[in-house]
Amino acid sequence: MRTERRTDGGEGDERTERALLVRTAEGDESAFRLLYDRLADRVFRYAFTLLHDRHLAEEVAQETMVIVWKQAATFEGRSKVSTWVFGIARFRALDLLRKEKRGDRVPELDLVEPDPAPAVESRERTLRAIGTLPEEQREVVFLTFYEGRSYGEIAGILGIPEGTVKSRMYYARRSLAEALT
């Protein structure tokens, strides 16, 4: 069961994930399962943010975790484990996106059942607002507010300068604040 943990944890989490990755590289299946439990759902949600398609996002999450199993020994330790994994997922997701691109896709984000409960209504409004952001802003919003990542880590995952991360966030936050107030 997934608890509401701060997804991008502190140094303790990173130490644990590195240890699990080392054991995964040695072929330790139980270590890989633990790593999977820590990362797979987050990778799935990130991929969904990029792709708006649950099946494709599942595919990306699965592929990414298989790559983690196979390539664990190649991790060089220059970033956090989760940054490395998210980078792989992003690459796979964008690759799929290029292949799947047929005109403008309708975001699956707003295919939520209409529900009159006020909490649900406001959630739908938020999802719609997120859905209208350009993809490049949307992922920064996800990585900051859901993953709790620093702008430095986001720059690492996206392979862009920190200043670009900040400015994408700046515009995204403006649009969201406008849509949600």
Partner: peptide
Amino acid sequence: TVHVRGSVRDAFSAQPPL
């Protein structure tokens, strides 16, 4: 921003899990 962050986290968390 605190308001936006709360709404966004809530919306992302409400998406079905893997």
